[in-house]
Simulated scan of single mutants.
Amino acid sequence: MASQKDIDRQIRAYYGGPDWDEGARLTSRSAQGSLEFVRTQELIAERIRAGSQIADIGGATGVHAAALADAGHEVTLLDPVSEQVEQARAYGTFEALVGDARGLPLEDRSVDVALLLGPLYHLSEREDRLRALREAIRVVRPGGWVFAAAIPRLARLAALSGGAGMPRGWEDLIEHGTSPAGGRFPGGHFHTGAELAAELNESGLLQVEVVGVEGPAGLAFEQLTEIDPELYSAALTVARAVAGQRGVQDLSNHLLAAGRRP
Rank of each mutant, 00 (worst) to 15 (best):
S3M: 07
Q4A: 11
Q4G: 11
K5V: 14
D8N: 15
R12L: 12
R12K: 14
A13C: 08
P18H: 11
E22I: 02
S34Q: 04
F37W: 06
F37A: 08
L43M: 11
I48C: 08
I48A: 08
I48Y: 00
I54L: 03
A55Q: 01
A60E: 01
G62F: 05
V63T: 14
A67T: 11
L68A: 02
A69C: 09
G72V: 05
E86T: 11
E86A: 12
T93L: 10
V98R: 07
G99E: 06
P105R: 12
L106V: 09
L106N: 06
D108F: 04
G118C: 05
S124H: 09
E127N: 14
D128W: 01
R129Y: 06
A132M: 10
L133A: 06
V139K: 01
G144M: 09
V146W: 04
A149G: 13
I151D: 01
A158G: 10
M166L: 15
P167L: 13
W170R: 10
E171Y: 06
L173T: 06
I174S: 12
G177W: 02
G177L: 07
G182L: 08
G182A: 11
G188S: 09
H189C: 11
E195Y: 12
A198K: 13
S203R: 05
S203M: 06
Q207H: 14
V213I: 15
P216V: 07
P216M: 08
F221N: 05
F221Q: 05
E222F: 13
D228P: 10
Y232H: 15
Y232A: 13
A234Y: 06
T237P: 02
A241N: 05
A241C: 03
Q249Y: 07
S252F: 02
G259Y: 00
